[in-house]
Amino acid sequence: MDKRINSYIEARVLEVLQIPNFSELPQEQKSTIAEKLRDLFNTAILDALIDSLTPDQLDQIKDIPADSPQMEDKIEEFASQIPLFITKIEEVMNAKVLEVKNNPALLS
């Protein structure tokens, strides 16, 4: 499943790279922009999740090390409990793509 998720993110990265501000850049700069985009998308998705957590859920994970498998597991668990969170993710991604397309300077 992770492979498909990754491919979705990469497709969105390529989508942004097609805009005139980026499409003519040298490959190296494109790769740098791509890294920034991935980071932007990751932040947007994780922020959307944290914004959707209940106080009780926040309490459950506040002391778990962020880079631990336990945190990964809890995030997956909580994401499965938020109604239509997948729709929320798509909305957040669409909003970010649009934002960057309209204002490429965000990535500079």
């Binding site: 990754n6 994780l46 944290i50 990964e72 995030i75 997956e76 994401a79 938020i82 239509l84």
Partner: peptide
């Protein structure tokens, strides 16, 4: 809430990607 966001933002890219995928996997189960 904000503290968690900040903590996740400080993670290495690979770890953030792992958590992102976990969030999306969960969302798909939902």
């Amino acid at each position: 809430r904000q503290g968690l966001k900040n903590e996740l933002a400080r993670l290495k890219a690979a770890d953030r990607t792992k958590l992102r995928n976990a969030a999306i996997r969960g969302a798909i189960s939902g």
